[in-house]
Amino acid sequence: MNVKIYSTPTCPYCIQAKKYLDGKNVQYEEFDVSKDRDAAMEMINKSGQRGVPVIDVNGEIIVGFDKARLDSLISG
């Protein structure tokens, strides 16, 4: 499974999403879009959004911390 999370250090939903993934023992790659312009552009191109978090699970894009959708993608 390939999971990427685009976030910022001060975003409360980003922190929740990362804690949730940690609790499920899901490995993910984190991109701080406040410091990484290339990652920010990649996130915008994938999602059409500038808000965080954006979570990419095997190419499926979740905007925000949508626990039900995240569960369905990481358990499937």
Rank of each mutant, 00 (worst) to 15 (best):
L73E: 13
T10S: 14
V54C: 12
G51E: 08
P12G: 05
D32K: 15
G64L: 04
K35I: 00
K19Q: 14
T10A: 10
K35Y: 07
V54Y: 01
C11V: 08
Q49K: 15
I55Q: 06
K35W: 00
M43V: 02
A68C: 03
D66Y: 11
V63F: 01
K46L: 15
P12W: 00
K19R: 13
Y13W: 03
Q49A: 03
F65I: 15
D71Y: 02
K35T: 02
N45A: 06
K67D: 02
E29V: 08
V63Y: 08
C11L: 08
Y28Q: 08
S75M: 10
N25P: 01
Y20K: 02
P9L: 00
N2D: 15
N2T: 14
G23M: 02
N45E: 13
K18H: 08
S47Q: 11
S75V: 06
G76W: 04
G76S: 09
Q16L: 10
C14H: 09
E42G: 07
I15F: 01
V52L: 07
D36H: 06
K19M: 07
V33I: 06
D71S: 08
D71Q: 00
I61M: 07
F31K: 02
L70T: 02
I61S: 11
K35Q: 13
S47A: 12
D71I: 00
C11M: 09
M41G: 10
D71P: 03
G76C: 03
V3G: 10
R50V: 13
G48K: 15
F31C: 10
I15K: 12
Q49M: 06
N2R: 07
V26Q: 00
G48Q: 09
N25F: 02
I61D: 10
P9W: 03
G64K: 11
A39L: 08
D56E: 14
N2V: 11
G76D: 14
L70K: 05
Q27Y: 01
G59R: 05
K4N: 12
K19A: 05
V57E: 12
R50G: 07
V26F: 01
L70D: 00
V54R: 11
K35C: 12
G48S: 11
V63N: 08
K35P: 13
T8I: 13
S47L: 09
S47N: 09
A40T: 12
L21H: 04
A40K: 14
A39H: 01
D22Y: 01
G48C: 03
V33H: 08
N2K: 10
E60V: 04
G48H: 13
K35H: 04
K24R: 01
K19Y: 05
P53W: 07
D56S: 11
D71R: 02
Y13D: 09
K18M: 01
M41K: 06
V63D: 06
D32W: 05
G59I: 02
D32Q: 11
G59H: 01
Y28R: 06
G51Q: 04
K4S: 14
K24C: 06
A17H: 10
V3R: 08
Q16D: 06
D22G: 11
S72E: 13
N58T: 00
T10L: 14
D36V: 10
A68F: 00
D36A: 10
V33K: 06
G64T: 01
P53N: 09
E42N: 14
A17G: 11
N58A: 12
A40S: 13
C11E: 08
I55T: 12
D71L: 07
M43C: 12
